[in-house]
């Protein structure tokens, strides 16, 4: 299982996937908003989304778990 982490601190602007969804490596799964900029966060490997740890509007710190992919 791989956990997609926040690359920097910020607010969760958009959650683009839901649990059970198939994703491909490189596909954006979450968009963070940090310092007035959209930061897309992509899955690193192919798999199925097992868990979404965050909700839109949440604040996350760098390295916080966003989504588990298996």
């Amino acid at each position: 299982m791989a956990t997609v982490q926040a690359s920097m601190a910020g607010n969760v602007w958009k959650v683009l996937v839901s649990e059970g969804e198939e994703v491909k490596a490189g596909q954006d799964v979450v968009i963070l908003e940090s310092m007035k900029m959209e930061i897309p966060i992509a899955a690193e490997e192919d798999g199925t989304v097992r868990k979404v740890h965050i909700n839109e509007g949440d604040f996350v710190n760098e390295a916080d778990a966003l989504v588990d992919v298996e």
Binding site: M8, A9, S34, M35, M37, I39
Partner: peptide, 12 residues
């Protein structure tokens, strides 16, 4: 700007 000079991503 507090940002990466190559990618322009923010750097808090």
């Amino acid at each position: 700007y507090a940002e990466d000079p190559k990618t322009f991503f923010p750097s808090p």
